[in-house]
Design a protein around this nucleic acid. Structure first.
Length: 258
DNA sequence: TAGGCCATCTGGTCCT
DNA sequence: AGGACCAGATGGCCTA
Protein backbone atom coordinates (compact mmCIF):
# COMPACT_ATOMS: atom_id res chain seq x y z
CA UNK A 1 0.00 0.00 0.00
CA UNK A 2 1.06 3.47 -0.56
CA UNK A 3 1.61 4.52 2.98
CA UNK A 4 4.57 6.51 1.79
CA UNK A 5 2.39 9.22 0.41
CA UNK A 6 1.10 9.79 3.88
CA UNK A 7 4.32 11.44 4.84
CA UNK A 8 2.41 14.56 5.67
CA UNK A 9 1.16 12.89 8.77
CA UNK A 10 3.98 10.55 9.53
CA UNK A 11 5.79 10.93 12.82
CA UNK A 12 2.50 12.04 14.14
CA UNK A 13 3.55 11.50 17.66
CA UNK A 14 5.71 14.53 17.37
CA UNK A 15 4.67 17.11 19.93
CA UNK A 16 4.25 19.65 17.20
CA UNK A 17 1.68 17.65 15.42
CA UNK A 18 -1.84 18.88 15.51
CA UNK A 19 -4.00 15.90 14.99
CA UNK A 20 -7.02 16.71 13.01
CA UNK A 21 -9.71 14.27 13.77
CA UNK A 22 -11.72 14.98 10.71
CA UNK A 23 -11.34 12.30 8.18
CA UNK A 24 -11.54 14.87 5.50
CA UNK A 25 -8.22 16.32 6.41
CA UNK A 26 -6.61 12.98 6.07
CA UNK A 27 -8.35 12.22 2.88
CA UNK A 28 -7.47 15.47 1.30
CA UNK A 29 -3.83 14.65 1.16
CA UNK A 30 -1.88 13.14 -1.64
CA UNK A 31 -1.91 9.73 -0.14
CA UNK A 32 -5.62 9.52 -0.25
CA UNK A 33 -5.91 10.84 -3.75
CA UNK A 34 -3.30 8.50 -5.03
CA UNK A 35 -4.84 5.69 -3.09
CA UNK A 36 -8.22 6.34 -4.60
CA UNK A 37 -6.80 6.54 -8.05
CA UNK A 38 -5.02 3.28 -7.69
CA UNK A 39 -8.06 1.57 -6.32
CA UNK A 40 -10.30 2.90 -9.02
CA UNK A 41 -7.86 1.54 -11.50
CA UNK A 42 -8.77 -1.94 -10.54
CA UNK A 43 -7.01 -3.00 -7.40
CA UNK A 44 -8.14 -6.48 -6.50
CA UNK A 45 -6.74 -6.36 -3.03
CA UNK A 46 -10.10 -6.32 -1.38
CA UNK A 47 -11.52 -9.26 -3.18
CA UNK A 48 -12.62 -12.04 -0.94
CA UNK A 49 -13.77 -9.81 1.86
CA UNK A 50 -16.86 -11.06 3.48
CA UNK A 51 -17.71 -8.20 5.79
CA UNK A 52 -21.05 -6.62 5.23
CA UNK A 53 -21.50 -3.11 4.19
CA UNK A 54 -24.48 -1.11 5.26
CA UNK A 55 -24.56 1.79 2.90
CA UNK A 56 -27.67 3.15 1.28
CA UNK A 57 -30.14 1.59 3.63
CA UNK A 58 -30.25 -2.04 2.66
CA UNK A 59 -27.39 -4.17 3.88
CA UNK A 60 -25.32 -5.96 1.36
CA UNK A 61 -22.76 -8.62 1.75
CA UNK A 62 -19.34 -7.61 0.62
CA UNK A 63 -19.55 -9.71 -2.44
CA UNK A 64 -22.41 -7.51 -3.50
CA UNK A 65 -20.58 -4.30 -2.95
CA UNK A 66 -19.53 -2.12 -5.75
CA UNK A 67 -15.96 -1.07 -5.89
CA UNK A 68 -16.82 2.39 -4.71
CA UNK A 69 -18.64 1.01 -1.72
CA UNK A 70 -15.76 -1.26 -0.88
CA UNK A 71 -13.42 1.67 -1.13
CA UNK A 72 -15.59 3.75 1.11
CA UNK A 73 -15.74 1.01 3.66
CA UNK A 74 -12.02 0.44 3.58
CA UNK A 75 -11.27 4.12 3.84
CA UNK A 76 -13.62 4.47 6.72
CA UNK A 77 -11.96 1.65 8.59
CA UNK A 78 -8.54 3.01 7.78
CA UNK A 79 -9.53 6.41 9.03
CA UNK A 80 -10.75 5.03 12.29
CA UNK A 81 -7.60 3.07 12.78
CA UNK A 82 -5.51 6.10 11.96
CA UNK A 83 -7.38 8.19 14.45
CA UNK A 84 -7.03 5.51 17.05
CA UNK A 85 -3.30 5.41 16.57
CA UNK A 86 -3.08 9.18 16.67
CA UNK A 87 -4.94 9.20 19.94
CA UNK A 88 -2.57 6.60 21.24
CA UNK A 89 0.38 8.71 20.20
CA UNK A 90 -1.11 11.76 21.85
CA UNK A 91 -1.41 9.82 25.06
CA UNK A 92 2.17 8.73 24.62
CA UNK A 93 3.22 12.35 24.20
CA UNK A 94 1.33 13.24 27.32
CA UNK A 95 3.24 10.58 29.15
CA UNK A 96 6.53 11.83 27.78
CA UNK A 97 5.75 15.32 29.01
CA UNK A 98 5.59 14.22 32.60
CA UNK A 99 8.57 11.95 32.48
CA UNK A 100 11.79 13.00 34.17
CA UNK A 101 13.92 13.33 31.17
CA UNK A 102 15.02 16.27 29.17
CA UNK A 103 12.58 17.89 26.83
CA UNK A 104 13.32 20.31 24.10
CA UNK A 105 13.44 20.82 20.40
CA UNK A 106 17.06 19.80 20.27
CA UNK A 107 16.41 16.57 22.03
CA UNK A 108 15.09 13.57 20.30
CA UNK A 109 12.07 12.23 22.06
CA UNK A 110 11.93 8.92 23.76
CA UNK A 111 10.79 6.01 21.75
CA UNK A 112 7.52 4.45 22.70
CA UNK A 113 9.06 1.45 24.34
CA UNK A 114 11.51 3.62 26.23
CA UNK A 115 8.71 5.87 27.37
CA UNK A 116 6.76 2.98 28.75
CA UNK A 117 9.72 1.42 30.48
CA UNK A 118 10.80 4.72 31.92
CA UNK A 119 7.31 5.46 33.13
CA UNK A 120 7.05 2.14 34.82
CA UNK A 121 10.28 2.56 36.69
CA UNK A 122 9.54 6.15 37.52
CA UNK A 123 6.30 5.08 39.14
CA UNK A 124 8.13 2.42 41.09
CA UNK A 125 10.68 4.93 42.20
CA UNK A 126 8.07 7.42 43.33
CA UNK A 127 6.17 4.74 45.16
CA UNK A 128 9.19 3.61 47.06
CA UNK A 129 10.16 7.17 47.82
CA UNK A 130 6.72 7.79 49.20
CA UNK A 131 6.94 4.73 51.38
CA UNK A 132 10.25 5.81 52.73
CA UNK A 133 8.92 9.27 53.40
CA UNK A 134 6.06 7.78 55.34
CA UNK A 135 8.49 5.80 57.43
CA UNK A 136 10.54 8.85 58.19
CA UNK A 137 7.49 10.86 59.13
CA UNK A 138 6.38 8.03 61.34
CA UNK A 139 9.74 8.01 63.02
CA UNK A 140 9.68 11.73 63.59
CA UNK A 141 6.20 11.90 65.01
CA UNK A 142 6.00 8.42 66.39
CA UNK A 143 8.36 8.84 69.31
CA UNK A 144 11.87 9.95 69.96
CA UNK A 145 12.96 6.71 71.50
CA UNK A 146 12.01 4.74 68.49
CA UNK A 147 13.74 7.21 66.28
CA UNK A 148 16.83 7.08 68.42
CA UNK A 149 16.99 3.34 68.44
CA UNK A 150 16.42 3.37 64.73
CA UNK A 151 19.19 5.78 64.11
CA UNK A 152 21.44 3.62 66.19
CA UNK A 153 20.73 0.71 63.95
CA UNK A 154 20.61 2.79 60.83
CA UNK A 155 22.91 5.69 61.36
CA UNK A 156 22.31 6.92 57.85
CA UNK A 157 18.73 7.65 58.76
CA UNK A 158 19.89 10.23 61.21
CA UNK A 159 18.45 13.46 59.83
CA UNK A 160 21.59 15.32 60.72
CA UNK A 161 23.63 13.08 58.52
CA UNK A 162 21.07 12.51 55.85
CA UNK A 163 22.56 14.84 53.35
CA UNK A 164 25.99 13.36 53.60
CA UNK A 165 26.15 9.64 53.92
CA UNK A 166 23.11 8.25 52.29
CA UNK A 167 23.15 4.97 50.51
CA UNK A 168 21.82 5.61 47.10
CA UNK A 169 18.62 4.36 45.76
CA UNK A 170 19.47 1.99 42.93
CA UNK A 171 17.69 4.25 40.54
CA UNK A 172 19.68 7.18 41.74
CA UNK A 173 22.81 5.20 41.26
CA UNK A 174 21.82 4.58 37.74
CA UNK A 175 21.17 8.24 37.21
CA UNK A 176 24.41 9.20 38.71
CA UNK A 177 26.28 6.70 36.72
CA UNK A 178 24.89 8.48 33.71
CA UNK A 179 26.35 11.69 34.90
CA UNK A 180 29.61 10.02 35.53
CA UNK A 181 30.03 11.55 38.94
CA UNK A 182 29.42 10.63 42.50
CA UNK A 183 26.35 11.94 44.24
CA UNK A 184 28.49 14.29 46.26
CA UNK A 185 29.77 15.78 43.08
CA UNK A 186 26.34 16.32 41.70
CA UNK A 187 25.18 19.82 41.39
CA UNK A 188 22.17 20.57 43.42
CA UNK A 189 18.90 22.23 42.60
CA UNK A 190 20.02 25.77 42.86
CA UNK A 191 22.94 25.46 40.56
CA UNK A 192 21.39 23.21 38.00
CA UNK A 193 18.07 24.94 37.80
CA UNK A 194 19.52 28.38 37.66
CA UNK A 195 22.07 27.50 35.10
CA UNK A 196 21.48 27.71 31.41
CA UNK A 197 19.69 24.78 29.85
CA UNK A 198 22.06 21.99 30.44
CA UNK A 199 22.75 19.32 27.92
CA UNK A 200 19.99 16.86 28.22
CA UNK A 201 20.60 13.35 29.12
CA UNK A 202 17.99 10.75 28.52
CA UNK A 203 17.55 7.81 30.72
CA UNK A 204 19.79 5.03 29.74
CA UNK A 205 18.96 1.41 29.75
CA UNK A 206 19.92 1.18 33.37
CA UNK A 207 17.54 3.93 34.30
CA UNK A 208 14.86 2.33 32.26
CA UNK A 209 15.35 -0.66 34.37
CA UNK A 210 16.11 -3.27 31.90
CA UNK A 211 19.24 -4.90 30.79
CA UNK A 212 19.62 -3.93 27.23
CA UNK A 213 21.04 -6.80 25.26
CA UNK A 214 24.21 -5.28 24.07
CA UNK A 215 23.60 -2.29 21.91
CA UNK A 216 20.24 -3.50 20.97
CA UNK A 217 16.76 -2.21 20.89
CA UNK A 218 16.84 0.22 23.72
CA UNK A 219 20.11 1.94 23.61
CA UNK A 220 20.29 5.53 24.64
CA UNK A 221 17.74 7.16 22.40
CA UNK A 222 19.22 10.58 22.61
CA UNK A 223 22.77 9.52 22.51
CA UNK A 224 23.77 12.41 24.65
CA UNK A 225 26.27 12.69 27.34
CA UNK A 226 26.28 15.49 29.81
CA UNK A 227 24.58 15.96 33.08
CA UNK A 228 21.11 15.09 34.02
CA UNK A 229 18.74 17.99 33.80
CA UNK A 230 16.34 18.30 36.65
CA UNK A 231 12.81 17.80 35.73
CA UNK A 232 10.82 21.04 35.92
CA UNK A 233 8.27 20.98 38.64
CA UNK A 234 9.54 17.71 39.93
CA UNK A 235 11.91 16.94 42.72
CA UNK A 236 15.50 16.96 41.83
CA UNK A 237 16.78 13.54 41.01
CA UNK A 238 19.00 14.09 43.97
CA UNK A 239 16.03 13.39 46.12
CA UNK A 240 16.75 9.90 45.05
CA UNK A 241 19.79 10.19 47.23
CA UNK A 242 17.84 9.07 50.18
CA UNK A 243 18.15 6.08 52.41
CA UNK A 244 17.56 2.95 50.53
CA UNK A 245 14.29 1.55 51.72
CA UNK A 246 14.33 -2.12 52.25
CA UNK A 247 11.26 -2.38 50.14
CA UNK A 248 13.00 -0.68 47.29
CA UNK A 249 15.99 -2.89 47.34
CA UNK A 250 13.99 -5.04 45.04
CA UNK A 251 13.43 -2.26 42.59
CA UNK A 252 15.92 -3.63 40.20
CA UNK A 253 14.48 -7.04 40.52
CA UNK A 254 11.16 -5.53 39.65
CA UNK A 255 12.56 -3.97 36.59
CA UNK A 256 11.48 -5.25 33.30
CA UNK A 257 13.62 -7.89 31.82
CA UNK A 258 12.95 -7.40 28.21
C1' DT B 1 24.13 -0.28 4.53
C1' DA B 2 21.93 -2.38 8.51
C1' DG B 3 19.12 -1.67 12.26
C1' DG B 4 15.76 0.93 14.94
C1' DC B 5 11.62 3.36 14.98
C1' DC B 6 7.59 4.75 13.07
C1' DA B 7 2.97 5.37 10.36
C1' DT B 8 -0.19 3.16 7.77
C1' DC B 9 -2.93 -0.50 5.79
C1' DT B 10 -5.19 -4.68 6.45
C1' DG B 11 -7.74 -8.68 8.11
C1' DG B 12 -9.13 -11.06 12.14
C1' DT B 13 -11.31 -11.18 16.68
C1' DC B 14 -13.92 -9.42 20.46
C1' DC B 15 -17.30 -6.47 22.48
C1' DT B 16 -21.50 -3.65 22.79
C1' DA C 1 -23.91 -4.69 12.69
C1' DG C 2 -20.57 -1.61 13.75
C1' DG C 3 -16.74 -0.20 16.18
C1' DA C 4 -12.60 -1.07 19.02
C1' DC C 5 -8.62 -3.56 19.46
C1' DC C 6 -4.81 -6.22 17.92
C1' DA C 7 -1.00 -8.03 15.27
C1' DG C 8 1.35 -8.78 10.87
C1' DA C 9 3.10 -6.70 6.71
C1' DT C 10 5.09 -2.97 4.31
C1' DG C 11 7.81 0.83 3.36
C1' DG C 12 9.94 5.41 4.70
C1' DC C 13 13.15 8.07 7.58
C1' DC C 14 17.10 8.47 10.40
C1' DT C 15 21.46 7.30 12.52
C1' DA C 16 25.70 4.75 13.51
Amino acid sequence: MDSDASSTCSRSSSPDLVVDDSAGSFFSNNMFQKYCQENRNGSEADQGMTERYGGGGKTKSRSELSKEEMQDLRLKVNSRERKRMHDLNQAMDGLREVMPYAHGPSVRKLSKISTLLLARNYILMLSSSLEEMKKLVGDVYGGGAAAQSRSAVHPTINPAATSVHLPLHPLAQSLHSLVGSTPAALQHHSSSSSSAPAPHSPPSGSFLGFHAPGQGLLKDPLNLGGSYRHFPGMPCPCTLCQPLPTATSTLHSLCMNK
